[in-house]
Simulated assay, not measured.
Amino acid sequence: MKKTIFITGASRGLGKIWTEAFLKRGDNVAAAVRNTDSLKELSAQFPENLLVIPLDVTNKNEAFEAAAKVKSHFGVIDVLINNAGYGHLGAIEELQEQEIRQQFETNVFGLIWLTQAVIPIMREQQFGHIIQISSVLGVIAFPTLGIYSASKFAVEGLTESLSAEVAGFGIKVTLVEPNGYETDFGASSAVYSKPLAQYDAVRTALQEGNKQEDYGVPEATSEAVLKLIDSENPPLRLLLGKAGVQWVKYAYSERMKTWEEWQTVSEAAHGK
Rank of each mutant, 00 (worst) to 15 (best):
P54R: 03
I119T: 12
V70A: 11
L145M: 15
E124G: 06
A164F: 13
R25T: 09
G168E: 07
Q103H: 00
A251G: 13
K194N: 15
E165M: 12
I171Y: 08
G110K: 07
N49W: 01
R25I: 13
A167Q: 12
I147N: 03
I130W: 01
I131D: 02
Q96M: 12
A84M: 06
L55P: 02
D230M: 01
Q98P: 00
D214L: 04
I229A: 05
G241W: 06
E94S: 00
L145H: 09
K16E: 14
F104D: 07
G75D: 09
S222H: 07
D56H: 00
F64K: 10
N35R: 11
P120Q: 08
Q116P: 07
L226M: 11
T8A: 01
S231M: 08
L111P: 06
E260L: 10
Q246P: 00
N28C: 04
W262L: 08
K3S: 02
S222N: 14
A67K: 01
G13A: 14
G157N: 02
L137W: 10
Q103W: 00
M122H: 05
P120K: 10
R12G: 09
R34D: 07
G146L: 09
R12T: 14
L80R: 02
V173K: 07
G180L: 13
G26I: 08
N61E: 14
N107R: 07
Q207E: 15
E65Y: 03
F22C: 05
A30N: 01
V202C: 09
S43W: 01
T264R: 10
A67E: 01
G138P: 08
A68C: 02
I121W: 06
L39E: 00
A117I: 13
E223W: 01
V217H: 13
T58V: 04
D27Q: 01
N49P: 03
I92N: 07
E208H: 10
V29R: 00
A269D: 12
L80W: 04
D37C: 02
G110T: 08
P54V: 02
A32Q: 00
D214C: 05
W262C: 02
K2P: 04
T144L: 11
G168T: 06
Q96I: 09
Q125E: 12
K227I: 03
Y181N: 10
G170W: 06
E267L: 15
T8Q: 05
A251H: 15
V225G: 05
N107K: 06
N179E: 15
E97H: 14
I92P: 05
E232V: 13
F6C: 01
Q102K: 08
E182R: 15
F46I: 12
R34H: 12
S189R: 07
D230W: 01
R101V: 11
A68E: 12
S189M: 06
G244E: 06
Q207D: 15
N82F: 05
V248Y: 08
A251Q: 12
F104T: 09
Y215D: 03
L50I: 04
T174R: 06
E65I: 02
Y215P: 03
A268V: 08
N28K: 06
A91M: 14
M1G: 00
L162K: 14
G110E: 07
L80D: 05
E41N: 08
L14H: 13
R237F: 09
L228V: 01
T4M: 01
V76K: 09
V176F: 12
